[in-house]
């Protein structure tokens, strides 16, 4: 919570009664306005949750907000039906894709970022600029070529293919973020370790990696959310038995009107883990965002 906390600013010095009255009134209006805005932002998600907890007939006959006037119509039936229909396996696929893709990106990017930050080699700046350029390359560019490549390698449709794709496209951001963090580590720490004759991999593992935990946490949460929430890559590269939740739900979209009892709980299940992670690690999330975006 600390990150989002607002600093309390000193109040302006004593002013006239009238201007203070205006301030008070304006402050009240602002408060009301912001509460309305917050409601506006909350209501859609709340709607999804309530719809996912109401029976099919209820959803077809009345709006979810009638919950507040006549309660006691909630049920977990939609969720149990969804899990009974095999949605659990796509949940598992999402985990199998997301966890390796996150860990691999962290490991590979940390090594590369270390080289960019602390090892001198010819052409280092030029190569790093290429990495920066790759930050904004749209994934669309790789869909067709990589589909061909995967067909050739025989991994089209597999979880491995999806993971590798996510790793590759996560790397530019990850390297950028970590390298910018690593260059901020006091150089004395590394020099001292080098003086002691520690091999480079050990400096990396014992000096840099522990210091970089916050940056790695930021990167980790970003990559995790990105991969967990991805639809497009899964749509192209995962076949039905390996599909993550997003693709499984997308295939139900065609009959939206009649499928709300599947889509609403499915969508809610798919967003609950990111949401929990987000609230648990939002400090790192914000730091990563600021580092990756403004910096």
């Amino acid at each position: 919570m600390t990150t989002l906390a607002e600093p309390r600013h000193a109040q302006p010095i004593e002013r006239g009664l009238f201007s203070r009255a205006v301030d008070r009134l304006g402050g009240g209006l602002v408060q009301v306005f912001m509460i309305l805005v917050a409601l506006f932002w909350l209501i859609p998600t709340l709607g999804l949750l309530v719809v996912s907890l109401r029976g099919e007939t209820d959803n077809n006959s009345s709006g979810w907000w009638t919950l507040f006037t006549k309660p006691a119509q909630l049920t977990f039936d939609n969720y149990s039906n969804l899990l009974a229909s095999g949605f659990g396996s796509s949940f598992w696929n999402t985990v199998l894709i997301t966890v390796p893709a996150t860990l691999l990106v962290i490991g590979i990017a940390a090594m590369a970022a270390y080289a960019f930050a602390w090892i001198e080699f010819p052409g280092r700046d030029a190569v790093f600029l290429v990495v920066i350029a790759l930050l904004v390359v749209p994934v669309q560019i790789a869909l067709i070529p990589i589909a061909k490549l995967y067909g050739f390698l025989g991994i089209f449709g597999s979880i491995l293919g999806v993971v590798l794709f996510h790793v590759a496209f996560g790397l530019p951001f990850a390297i950028f973020l970590l390298r910018n963090f690593f260059v901020g580590i006091p150089r004395e720490l590394l020099e001292a370790a080098r003086m002691d004759g520690a091999p480079e991999w050990r400096i990396f593992a014992t000096v840099v990696f522990p210091l970089a935990k916050p940056a790695i946490a930021s990167l980790g949460i970003f990559q995790f959310l990105w991969v967990w929430n991805d639809l497009l890559v899964a749509l192209v590269f995962a076949d039905t038995e390996n599909q993550p939740m997003t693709k499984a739900l997308q295939s139900q979209m065609r009959q939206f009107g009649t499928n709300v009892d599947i889509l609403a709980p499915g969508a809610f299940l798919s967003l609950i883990i990111p949401l929990v992670l987000f609230f648990a690690f939002q400090r790192y999330f914000v730091q990563g965002m600021l580092a990756g975006s403004v910096k």
């Binding site: 932002w41 859609p44 998600t45 709607g47 999804l48 719809v51 959310l225 967990w228 929430n229 991805d230 639809l231 997003t246 739900l249 997308q250 979209m253 939206f256 709300v260 889509l263 609403a264 969508a267 809610f268 798919s270 967003l271 990111p274 949401l275 992670l277 987000f278 999330f285």
Partner: peptide
């Protein structure tokens, strides 16, 4: 908060 939610889930939310 919506930043943490997949665009697919956001899409379902707004279809509703």
């Amino acid at each position: 908060m919506p930043m943490a939610v997949s665009l697919l889930a956001a899409g379902v939310i707004f279809r509703l």
